[in-house]
Every structure is written in structure tokens, then in C-alpha cells.
């Protein structure tokens, strides 16, 4: 392998090894098989994102309950879900839930994935909402009160329209993060691109190329998405003149 006068293989001897052990043939053969899983992988991402967005609000409300002991309890439950491994949460839903007395029922792997990842990340989304709301100028609350807005209208007409737009880039970031967590569901039987790669590997004894394809697919899609989000961030900055709100990325 040469670039101009430089023989790369002499400088980086492992390039020869890569050429010998990496089978392009396997790449072309496995790619169509793996790519079939893109629909499930993306679908799961979007579904769990929707769940996370929804439950993010639920946590907000639960933590605002006037009854101290309850709101404290829910805050800790939220912290519990946020600080424990999503993989274990998936196992709990898939292997554990069917055996729960009375309410237990077997859940489809896809549903487990949506609920598991969705609820796990809803705890992070809730924090994003919270910091968006906190970044609204204090004077807005007072103005709403002075204009005699009802609580409901205050939220829907004054606070949320200002709190939410700056959080959009952060929410977009979490979409990408969740997209990268979705392959965890391969361990509970969801047939996304990771599981298809593993199946191919198990069948044909070549894991390297399929896994590389999966890695590259993720790389391309998440990089493209992050570029889109950065563009959105610029547009929002120009419009509101405020910096985007939200806690820092994972």
C-alpha cells in the first residue's frame, strides 16, 4: 500500500496483517443480510425515543407532587433507574417480568427493548426538560401571574414555548445516544443489525467483517445525525439568542 513515495506497509506492519485477515468477500456477502435489520434497529430507536419523551414529562410531574414523601420516593426511583445498567433492566423485563405473580406476562423482545431503553433514558430526558424550564427567565413567571394566567395556560402558553426549543439539540443528542444503546437488545433476541451480524458469524465462522459493517453503519448514521443536530443548534441559537439548555451529554 503506497502513498506517493511512502510504503505504508513498512511503517505500519499491521496493515499487511489486516489485508490478509480481512475478507472483502465476506463483506459483500454479509452486508445485505445485516442491512435487513436496519428497519428494526431504527424502529426500536424511534419508538423508545417516543417513550422516553413521554415518560420524561411523567417524571417531572411525579417529582412535583406536593406530598413530600411521595415526591421524594419518585425522585429516588428515577435516580435508581438512571444509575443502574440498562442491560440488567432489559433482562428484568424479558426474563423476569413473565414470572411476576399476578401481573406477569411474557413480553415480546421488541416491546421489552422499547420499554427498557425508553424508560431508562426518560430519566435523562426529564433532566433536560427540567433545565430547560429553569433557564426560562424568572420574570416570565411573574408576568404570567400579573396577567392572571391560569396554571394550565401559564405552562402551555408562556413557559413551555420558551423552555422547550433550546432543549431540542440536547434531545437530539439523546436520540443518537439511544440509537447506540439499542443493540443491547440483541441479547434478548431482537433481530436488529447486531444480532444479524452475530447470527452470520455463528453460521459462517467469520465475525470480524459483519461486526465491522455494523460498527461502520452506526458510525455513518450517528455522525450524519450529529451534523444535522449541530446545524439545528446554530439555527436555534440565531433565533432565540439563547444558548441551548440541558445537561451535558453522556
Amino acid at each position: 500500500m503506497r502513498i506517493g513515495n511512502l510504503d505504508l506497509e513498512r511503517i505500519f506492519p499491521f496493515i499487511t496483517r489486516i489485508k490478509e485477515n480481512f475478507s472483502w468477500e465476506t463483506v459483500t456477502e454479509s452486508f445485505p443480510i445485516i442491512f435487513k435489520g436496519i428497519g428494526i434497529t431504527l424502529g426500536l430507536t424511534i419508538a423508545s425515543f417516543a417513550v422516553a419523551l413521554l415518560f420524561g414529562f411523567v417524571w417531572l410531574l411525579l417529582r412535583k407532587i406536593p406530598f413530600k414523601p411521595l415526591s421524594w420516593l419518585f425522585t429516588w426511583i428515577m435516580e435508581f433507574i438512571r444509575s443502574t445498567p440498562p442491560l440488567v433492566q432489559l433482562f428484568f423485563l424479558y426474563y423476569g417480568w413473565p414470572n411476576v405473580p399476578v401481573v406477569g406476562v411474557t413480553l415480546d423482545p421488541f416491546v421489552c427493548g422499547v420499554l427498557g431503553i425508553g424508560i431508562h433514558f426518560s430519566t435523562y430526558i426529564s433532566e433536560v426538560y427540567r433545565s430547560g424550564i429553569e433557564s426560562v427567565d424568572k420574570g416570565q413567571w411573574e408576568a404570567a401571574k400579573a396577567l392572571n394566567y391560569s396554571a394550565g395556560k401559564k405552562w402551555t402558553k408562556v413557559i413551555l414555548p420558551q423552555a422547550l426549543p433550546p432543549t431540542i439539540p440536547m434531545l437530539g443528542n439523546y436520540l443518537i445516544i439511544m440509537f447506540k444503546e439499542v443493540p443491547l437488545t440483541a441479547t434478548i433476541g431482537v433481530i436488529g443489525i447486531l444480532q444479524l451480524a452475530r447470527d452470520y458469524g455463528a453460521q459462517y465462522w467469520r465475525y470480524l467483517e459483519p461486526l465491522t459493517i455494523v460498527a461502520l453503519l452506526f458510525l455513518v448514521m450517528s455522525y450524519a445525525s450529529s451534523l444535522i443536530i449541530r446545524r439545528m443548534e446554530k439555527k436555534i441559537n440565531e433565533r432565540t439568542g439563547k444558548k441551548p439548555a440541558g445537561t451535558a451529554v453522556q
Binding site: 440483541a186 461486526l211 452506526f218 458510525l219 450517528s222
Partner: peptide
């Protein structure tokens, strides 16, 4: 950053 931990 662009790839998934489990895939890595």
C-alpha cells in the same frame, strides 16, 4: 463516540 459500546 459514534459507535455503540456493545459493538465496540
Amino acid at each position: 463516540r459514534g459507535t455503540s459500546l456493545i459493538v465496540q
